[in-house]
Amino acid sequence: MPHLSVHVLESDLAGREAALIEKLTDAVVAVYGDWARSIAVVQLIGLPSSRWGIGGRPARAPSPSVTFGIREAAFSRPDADEIVARLVSGVTDAIVDVFGERVRDGVTVELIGTPAGRTGIGGVVVTS
């Protein structure tokens, strides 16, 4: 299941939560298809500005950072490079749609592959 955790300044996030969840889900659906809409998980993590540092100092206006969990098998597909590029581009565009162009150059999207059998839902290991 696509799982996105987004770290963003709380002051930037306030009032934009629904729009961000919708845009990020739409970005996932644009790559995977509509079947993924119901299983896409978006978690928004708002941080006070004093709790975000870059280069050993508190960050002044950091861009959002996204950790995107997907099945490791996606990286072995023949079209893996295209999928990765579309996910990174789509997620970045979704964030820019909500927060504006000022964040684009700093948006980080990290795709993390989870091997089959390394995830559990409801106390049961998911093997597919």
Rank of each mutant, 00 (worst) to 15 (best):
V98S: 12
S49K: 08
W35T: 03
A30T: 00
A80F: 09
I70G: 15
G113L: 02
V124I: 14
A74W: 15
P2N: 06
P78F: 10
Q43F: 03
D81L: 12
I95S: 03
T67A: 15
L4T: 00
G100P: 01
G46L: 03
W35H: 07
G69I: 05
E110C: 12
G90E: 13
R102V: 00
R77G: 08
V41D: 10
R102E: 08
A116C: 05
I54N: 14
V125H: 02
P115T: 02
S128W: 08
A27K: 10
R16L: 00
S63L: 04
A59K: 05
G69P: 02
S49L: 11
K23A: 15
V41E: 13
T127C: 06
R102Y: 01
V29H: 02
V29W: 08
G15C: 07
D105N: 10
G113F: 00
D12Q: 09
H3P: 00
L44V: 01
G122W: 11
P58C: 05
P48F: 11
T25A: 03
F99W: 02
S50W: 09
S128H: 12
G69S: 15
E10T: 06
V126F: 08
A85G: 03
P78C: 05
P64Q: 06
V103P: 10
S50N: 07
G15R: 01
I83T: 10
T114W: 15
T108F: 12
V28G: 12
A94Y: 09
D81A: 13
D97G: 04
T108S: 14
S128K: 01
G46Q: 01
V109D: 11
R118A: 05
V125M: 11
S5Y: 13
V66D: 14
H7N: 12
V88W: 07
S89F: 04
R16A: 01
G122N: 10
A18W: 00
G100W: 02
D34L: 09
A73M: 14
T25R: 03
P64D: 08
E17Q: 08
D79F: 12
A94H: 06
I21M: 13
A116R: 09
V124M: 12
P78Y: 03
L13Q: 07
I45L: 14
A27H: 04
G100M: 02
K23D: 11
L111F: 12
L20C: 02
F75W: 09
S89L: 07
D93C: 03
I21W: 04
W52M: 12
A116Q: 04
A40V: 05
G55P: 10
L47G: 02
L13A: 06
M1H: 10
L47I: 02
